[in-house]
Write a protein that binds this DNA or RNA. Structure first.
Lengths: 198, 198
DNA sequence: GTCTATACAAAGATAGAC
DNA sequence: GTCTATCTTTGTATAGAC
């Protein structure tokens, strides 16, 4: 099990991730077996495992990519002076059923401290809370967030809300995650305009 | 694969569920294999499967039991005139790591419409929203909930919050789910005393 | 390093005897 | 109603070819 940095290996990993992402997005996590992912990438089971070691590590990598893609979107929008809204977050990767399923299931599975991806999720949640907290504290400093709101509690709740909404949305796509988040933010007592990410 | 109603079968199923619940609660879902659950219940793999058909149905039944136990707790407290608080909800079965892991992972897995437990979760979420909505509308009628709050949105968010908090709590047990829920309810503008369930 | 073929273990499910 | 034996699928480990 490698993870080399040679050009050919890098390229192949990229190719594998891309086709795996497509399969998961289209057919869901349940149906994504190693054999299937390998075929889609045009190599044997073991050929695929050579690049990622285990199935779990492959999926962990897919989720890291998802995070990166979301980051990139936000950074790009910010650079373009678009001031991305927090309530737009669900419209990113959180709107792709297969990925949401992968993310939710994996986050439950990896709650076992022995799991390969445990540390990834632990620190991911920690960071999510910290980032939310930083945004809320900025609002506080700007006088846009009431003194009665504990930013730390609000940050944890916001992260939880995003996770929970994704699950319900899988069962009922008519749920408007963006509106729900906007609702929550408005209940925090944030004054207009709509709060931004960065 | 049966699910008979003969006394002996019923008793055995009860016994299986009880020992399975214990194993899942103690060691988590990942490590709970059919073989292990069968041994704990004192029969063979197939002996166990005879009673539930598939692994998935066994676990679905465990979750139904969890719901029923929670219901019973609430009903009992209500009968005793204790007026159970919404913010106490997380202290019920939501405080048992193995069960929370099972619940979360299963809810993600069963988002696939083909999954045995899909309908169970779909209607469970629907009911959870409806019940929350009913409570909030009662508060509205009593003049305790501001007109500015859309009860339906608040209900969906409340259910999502409970789900999301459980996941984060698996990774960081220092998160106080009860306090977070109380925080959310207070941001809805509910006046004291703390809102009750029934 | 990259990859294939073979072999293997564990899990869930099925068939049929008792 | 329960068991033994069998089958299939999944993920993984090993050996070795290019």
């Amino acid at each position: 099990m490698a993870l080399t940095n040679y050009p050919k290996g890098l390229a192949k990993r990229e190719e594998i991730l891309e086709s795996a992402l497509k399969i998961v997005a289209e057919r869901g996590y349940n149906r994504a077996t190693i054999r299937e992912l390998a075929e889609a990438a045009g190599l044997s089971k073991t050929g695929l495992l050579h690049h990622f070691g285990t199935k779990e590590e492959l999926f962990a990598e897919i989720l890291r990519r998802r995070d990166q893609a979301d980051e990139a979107h936000i950074a790009q929008a910010t650079a373009a002076g678009l001031d991305p809204k927090i309530s737009d977050l669900p419209r990113l990767s959180s709107g792709v059923p297969g990925l949401v399923q992968l993310y939710t299931r994996f986050s439950a599975e990896a709650s076992d401290p022995e799991h390969t991806a445990h540390e990834y999720f632990r620190s991911r949640y920690e960071q999510a809370r910290e980032r939310s907290l930083a945004v809320l504290e900025r609002f506080r400093a700007e006088g846009r967030l009431p003194e009665s709101v504990d930013p730390a509690r609000a940050a944890t709740s916001l992260v939880a809300l995003l996770d929970g909404l994704q699950i319900q949305w899988l069962y009922d796509p008519s749920i408007d995650m963006g509106e729900e988040v906007a609702f929550f933010l408005s209940r925090l007592g944030l004054d207009a305009p709509a709060p931004t990410v960065g």
